[in-house]
Amino acid sequence: MIPESHFLILGAALFSIGVFGVFTRRNAIGILMSIELILNAANINLITFSKFSASPDGLGQIFALFVIAIAAASAVVGLCLVISIYRNSKTILVNKINLMKW
């Protein structure tokens, strides 16, 4: 079967790609998409450890369920903020948004 480390490497690669996206994207929606990638990488790790741990009681899968719920909530609130910011300042490029700057 597929060794455990290959799942972990897949998760690590996905995490790095998400970090790259957070660094480079100027669009707030793009940053939120990259954060979703990072959360999915965490989920892959959780489920991998749940499957390969010595006493699998499903804790990893339950934790991944909770992460999915939190990710959904954060995406909803984040996208709502993006729409609200766009309504006020007509841009969603994060380097153009300076409402909080003195």
């Binding site: 660094f23 994207r25 939120l32 996208l79």
Partner: peptide, 22 residues
């Protein structure tokens, strides 16, 4: 969530303005 992303992209303008990557 993807449907939500697509809706937000459509509700905010300049989809194709090409300046989204740094």
């Amino acid at each position: 969530i993807v449907v939500l992303f697509i809706f937000t992209v459509m509700l905010t303008a300049d989809i194709d303005s090409g300046t989204f990557v740094g």
